[in-house]
């Protein structure tokens, strides 16, 4: 489909097309100019506020840009990132698996009824209560923070997978049932391939919630990691370090979420959009 479009010889453009093209170019250029203006405005506003209230209370962008290399030099930077990423890997990995299993189970109305309230509770409750509950039960043991991450994140994954289940092509499942296809084969050949893009979306959304909880658990129950460093910085009133930790990991997570995951999501499932058109 796409190839036939490309093979069309690019004939001479009409005046109308020329005009539209110029208009679009102008639009894109305008967008970038205004975007840049936004950056300049907000960074300047930030610098101005920090100048007025004092560099120690609200460190300006330049000061933070200087602090990050200092943290890297001190050697704590990468070890903290490593510690936090390990926690995310374990905690969120588990939450992701549990979320998918529950999501797939919602095909059955019985399991759907069973987990319905669990998912609702997990969605509406703040991560703080799970962090503190896990901690007060298990202390600094890994179960504590794993519990917190799982309880906060699994529902996000489940909801996205369940949305895939809801959109499952009913004629296919009905037909497989009518022809007596076994449940396992139906899951493997119809449900799982169909769910793949939803699982990817679930991964992205789950990650965006999961890393925040992880950092929060580190504040209460860790002696390393980004959350721990942020707490120490705030207790020592080192605002520049607090901001440097926050912003560096924030940017890292955002890049991972928006650029890497979103891009791969599009790349892997491009065929799906084409097939549906």
């Amino acid at each position: 489909m796409a190839t036939t479009l490309e093979q069309q010889a690019p004939g001479p453009r009409s005046a109308e097309e020329e005009r539209l093209l110029a208009l679009r170019k102008k639009e894109i250029r305008d967008r970038w100019i205004w975007r840049l203006a936004g950056y300049v405005f907000f960074l300047l506003a930030w610098a101005l506020v920090s100048r007025i209230v004092g560099d120690n209370l609200i460190p300006g962008p330049l000061r933070i840009a200087r602090t990050i290399p200092e943290l890297i030099e001190s050697g704590r930077f990468f070890s903290s990132f490593g510690a936090t990423l390990t926690r995310i890997g374990i905690g969120f990995g588990l939450a992701f698996l549990i979320g998918i299993v529950i999501g797939v189970l919602t095909q059955s109305r019985w399991w759907n009824g069973f987990f319905r309230d669990a998912v609702t509770i997990s969605l509406v409750s703040p991560s703080l209560i799970w962090a503190l509950t896990g901690l007060v039960i298990w202390g600094f043991e890994p179960q504590g923070w794993i519990f917190a991450i799982v309880m906060t994140t699994f529902a996000v994954v489940t909801v996205n997978v369940a949305e895939g289940i809801r959109a499952l092509p009913k004629d296919l499942t009905d037909m497989s049932r009518a022809f007596g296809v076994t449940n396992w084969r139906r899951q493997r050949d119809i449900v799982f391939p169909f769910l793949a893009p939803f699982v990817f979306t679930a991964l992205r959304f789950g990650f965006s919630v999961g890393w925040k909880v992880t950092v929060l658990t580190e504040v209460f129950s860790s002696n390393e990691g980004i959350g721990f460093e942020m707490r120490v910085a705030s207790q020592l009133f080192r605002m520049d370090e607090l901001f440097a930790w926050a912003i560096s990991f924030f940017i890292f997570a955002l890049v991972l979420e928006k650029l890497v995951l979103q891009r791969y999501e599009r790349k892997f499932f491009r065929w799906r959009a084409e097939a549906s058109t």
């Binding site: 209370l57 965006s208 890393w211 925040k212 950092v215 929060l216 504040v219 959350g227 942020m230 707490r231 705030s234 009133f237 605002m239 607090l242 901001f243 926050a246 924030f250 997570a253 955002l254 979420e257």
Partner: peptide, 13 residues
């Protein structure tokens, strides 16, 4: 996308 923890710590100080 900013975690609540960041502004919580900052606002407290």
């Amino acid at each position: 996308a900013m975690p609540a923890l960041v502004y919580a710590l900052f606002l407290g100080l």
